[in-house]
Design a binder for these strands. Structure first.
Lengths: 248, 248
DNA sequence: GAATTTCGTTGATCTGGATCAAGCAAGTGG
DNA sequence: CCACTTGCTTGATCCAGATCAACGAAATTC
């Protein structure tokens, strides 16, 4: 039985797990103090809607933990995920009055929120924050463009392999070199979320997962636990420029 | 017979046609003088390659005139356009050593270039530039996400209608209110470029153009000249949230 | 002005992934 | 314990868009 915490206890910026990767990563301690005074935490349960398209944007925020999904929906219900927010990623944009897409908590998500208006003022006066935000936005843009290649030109099999390869690589970076073989990844998402992300239907996702399993590219322990015996093989299936260089 | 000008005469920033929309739009005259000293113009012919993926990024630049296309290509030749650079748009990213995609001149293109390293320094010292660049990057990210919805979920007909609607709207904004009816747009791109942009084949592009013409959604004078008799109708075919508000 | 080349259209056919439909396994709630 | 729901898989069929192929129009070259 999980307790539903809506207002998490606020931690000190100095102890913050995303301290060195979030918008605030370039800040000096005096600037951190300003942020410290402005911020408030909020936690959303898995599946909960964080924001709807066209909602007024009162807050901007950093993701402290969990995964949030950005998506756009057409009137007839067709839906496309347009981004994933992982811990340290930034939600909302300075200078914009309303949200341009839906935001959903894919897992339980904790946000470190700042009211938008004061935050915009802060950007003016603290170039470090603006610069970091620019870096992060440029990275997101690169990722979005990679995703466009996937959506526009890759086959269903390649799409699935790409997603799994991305998750696997993220996993690999976090782990010490020794603990990597064989590489295990956990899908913290339903088949529907995968389908929305990849521009496929759940049936096709399911079939391609089965196909990759039968071909020995992945192994499955239950529906959400995947083992990758041979990462280069998986990357090859993804159709990306082969190498990408060694992992560390 | 067109003359091939590679080094255009440099114009004064003050007289620059993109003065108020480019990265430099927030700059004061003292800052403009700095840019004035750093900049150099270069013009590329239609179809010419401006930059290859993995090229070292010596320059960043603003597009002064013309249209440049960003694209990514898979080993087997499948290609996806991932962005269009129109006049005032910015090319290249500070802090990155190499290009992450190919850049091609779709029409004749003139760039206002700055060497990357000095430009990076300038960003540090001139917050106005960094702030403008952030704004522009955020807009591009929004556009990329809209494009992801198109690539992942729209039908071929909707894709074509979306592209034409975007071009039509851009046209409409430039024109005085009176000169709008009927709205004429000029495709400055081949069917192949359209296909690469929309994640389709040229045959499908051609067929859907014909279909839209037969259904009276568009009219065609030659292959590259389109008339839109009823913009809302076209937007409706694009499958986007209907309104978007009145044009002015 | 014939021969190429480039760009676009159209027709015939094929196929990858969508759609429709059924069923299974693991909760969950009465 | 049984009814119901949720998440996933699998099978049968369909169809939008890809592929293969031919051709037409305009521009370019010789």
């Amino acid at each position: 039985m999980t307790q539903h915490v809506l207002k998490s206890p606020t931690i000190n910026c100095v102890d913050c797990p995303i301290r060195h990767r979030a918008v605030c990563s370039n800040c000096e301690s005096s600037e951190l103090q300003l942020l410290e005074m402005m911020k408030s935490y909020k936690t959303y349960g898995a599946g909960e809607q964080i924001m709807w398209k066209d909602d007024p944007l009162r807050f901007v925020a950093s993701v402290v933990s969990g995964v949030a999904a950005l998506s756009r929906t057409m009137e007839d219900g067709r839906r496309q995920m347009v981004g994933l927010l992982l811990p340290a990623d930034f939600l909302g944009r300075p200078g914009r009055e309303r949200a341009t897409f839906d935001v959903t908590a894919a897992t339980e998500v904790t946000l470190c929120r700042f009211e938008r208006k004061p935050f915009e003022k802060l950007i003016e006066s603290t170039p470090a924050i603006g610069r970091r935000l620019l870096e992060m936005t440029l990275d997101e843009l690169d990722a979005a463009r990679d995703w466009m290649l996937l959506l526009g030109r890759k086959t269903a099999r390649e799409k699935i392999a790409s997603l799994l390869a991305i998750l696997a690589q993220r996993q690999a970076i976090l782990l010490p070199n020794s603990a990597r073989q064989p590489l295990k990844i956990e899908l913290q998402m339903t088949r529907e979320a995968m389908a929305d992300y990849l521009g496929l239907t759940i049936e096709t996702v399911s079939r391609q997962m089965t196909a990759l399993r039968k071909d020995g590219v992945i192994e499955m322990q239950g529906k959400r636990h995947i083992t990758v015996p041979d990462l280069p093989r998986l990357q090859d299936e993804a159709g990306d420029d082969a190498d990408g260089g060694p992992l560390d």
